[in-house]
Design a protein around this nucleic acid. Structure first.
Lengths: 193, 193
DNA sequence: CTGATTTCTTGTCATTTGTCAAGTAATTAT
DNA sequence: ATAATTACTTGACAAATGACAAGAAATCAG
């Protein structure tokens, strides 16, 4: 329950002084959630931002047929928030829930705003977070529009094998943009080779 | 060739004083490109950021088979840059080219950095740009993984009909994640109804 | 431990989309 | 104006994926 991993995360993203990081993370407070608990509920305005220290999470929306579509899977350590809801103070269109037991560090928009306007390195860090997340999303979009499901599955398996130990195939299938029976068939075919 | 539309764009995104906008856009300079010209080339480090004042652009990558996959279509007025290349000063993985004749306002990373760290409203504006662009990308990803091609086509036609007057169906098809023959068939089917 | 629930797999068949090849229409370059 | 190129459409067939239903395996709640 110390801030070592939170502080470390700042250093991992770009060079920043120890004292500056400590000033930034001063306002963060710790909490835990069991598995399958809601972190950010759909239609609520998000006032906190979260650092996922330990565990697995996902975001999802409900489509026209009322089915859950997993939009993202979050693997600690990383920041989790709904950008649109948090920064524009609008109701979230997605829900965010824990998949495993998770631990978090959270802080408020007020603190983020203070740091953003008063600590230059935090500004750079924030922007870098956006750039990195935008880039990840872009890569997924390219994969979704130019690769077949089997390729997307193979890449996920290669790049994030630990996800398969912690997240159900149903959620993974939805994240890959296919049904769980299709994923099951793909896994069988791969196994044959 | 005055900065009216550039300045106006800042005001349209969030409340900001006229004088502040003028200070921000002071360093921007104007240029034009004919159709089918490269704005940002793949594998180059982007040192400028661009405001697309007039015209249509696209970004694309080459897939394993050497085919162009359109990753985004840009409709003026909007900012165009490769976030990863510009802010991390890395070689761009995508190419950006004009589709029609275009006019631009550009400024350098140095100017952006100066404004980012010295003009609070510019920080807010920058972050909002990221939030909005992230959100658009996220919506496209959700559409790609949960809607069929016909639905994606119908939505594009409804929300951005002008694109169909200015961008070839081949590019639109690629942007929608399908082949041009599939798009052609979808259009025929729609026509029947 | 036991029944209930959820996850995962599998089979059959339908639908969507891709591939390839050919043809027509439109645009561009000289 | 003419030839070359590019854009768009179409058809036949193949491949990928979805829908639905059923059963096996794993997990969960009491």
């Amino acid at each position: 329950m110390n801030k070592a991993s939170l502080n470390q995360y700042f250093h991992s993203l770009f060079p920043i002084e120890k004292e500056v990081v400590e000033k930034i993370t001063e306002s963060f407070s710790y909490f835990e959630l069991e598995k399958n608990k809601v972190l950010i509920d759909v239609n609520t305005v998000s006032t906190q931002t979260f650092f996922l220290e330990r565990g697995y999470m996902r975001s999802f929306i409900l489509n026209e047929d009322g089915e859950q579509v997993t939009t993202n899977i979050y693997t600690a350590p990383c920041f989790v928030n709904d950008f649109l809801s948090f920064f524009k103070q609008q109701p979230s269109k997605e829900s965010y829930q824990t998949i495993t037991e998770c631990s978090f560090w959270e802080t408020s928009l007020e603190n983020v705003q203070f740091n953003f306007h008063n600590i230059p390195d935090f500004r750079e860090f924030s922007r870098l977070l956006f750039v990195v997340n935008y880039h990840k999303l872009n890569d997924r979009l390219i994969a979704m529009s130019s690769q077949k499901a089997e390729t997307r599955y193979m890449n996920l398996l290669k790049l994030q094998p630990h996800i398969f130990q912690n997240v159900s195939l149903k959620i993974i299938a939805s994240y890959l943009g296919i049904t769980d029976s299709s994923l099951s068939r793909i896994r069988r075919e791969i196994g044959k080779i």
